[in-house]
Amino acid sequence: MSFLSLSHVTKSFGAAPVVDTVDLAIEQSEFFALLGPSGCGKTTLLRMIAGFETPDSGTISIDGAAMNTVPPHQRPTNMVFQSYAIFPHLNVFDNIAYGLRKLKLPKDALRARIEAMLATVRLEGLGARAADQLSGGQRQRVALARALVREPKVLLLDEPLGALDKRLRETMQVELRAIQRKVGITFLLVTHDQEEALSLSDRVAVMSGGKILQVASPRELYDRPNCREVADFIGEMNFFHATVRELTDATATVNAGLLGIVTLPRANLVPGIKTDDHILLAIRPEQVRIAPNGLAGEIVTSTFLGERSHFHVRIASRSEPVAVSGHAPAQGTVMLAFPPESLIGLPFA
């Protein structure tokens, strides 16, 4: 059994399920992200792991121990709240020491432990600082330190960087990753920011409508999404309708309308697709080639991004323009090619 394991976890508020039969297996010391739009159930899932919500059915276990009947204050988890929830009546030191009361540490040992934690989150010398004299980034660090100092088995982070400005967020992303490597604690991060999820995590679960759509490494999520929703949510994707003509062990031949008959590696198809199935062929903007011969299209918008440009190219008899990323003149007609090895086949649903 995995270190943190969720089995058939379901939770409803009223009639509609917010979390719908979720199974999840997270390994020890893994940095795992739950990614999804707001309202997809990811925060509810996190709060069930922390014990603030009770699943209607299903089981949650951590390190082999079932958690269902364990109240929040007895779980081996700690949480970094979205609002940080820094105790306003305590200074930085007392905030971090809050959860250590029951250990009854001697004063020196307590001080040493807090100082070490302050160093880990780079708040050296700020122990006496009052809670209302902290900047947003410092509050975030105090919240992190307060949770980490208890050495939980699982650290839960609820949109921890959402309240920070862009530059601080990028700095904290790097630091968060470094801290996780250093302490070796399992991190479970909830975010709606795909960039954050992809750059921080070992693995990502994409959630929508209370269900988990796909669990994979960031690279795999980007290169091999298993459905249209994941492909849409992570980065940008062009879709073409197609019908499967023939499947062999190594290849798949499909009739892709505008793109003609295309033969692509069988591995590029999501498992389960059969001959005569109606599918979607998907390709990332940067995989579309601007070539001497190909499908002619008119550039309708172009955005210069420095190292490359981003285009929308209208192709005759297709309502949706094709998104292309690369080098081309800012306007006019271009020829687009769609390398078969870059096309992936998703079920049409």
Partner: peptide, 16 residues
């Protein structure tokens, strides 16, 4: 005026 998360944070940090 005060954040409800404060009480949850306290429970999370091990207090009844």
């Amino acid at each position: 005026g005060f954040d409800r998360n404060l009480e949850e944070a306290s429970a999370d940090l091990g207090e009844s």
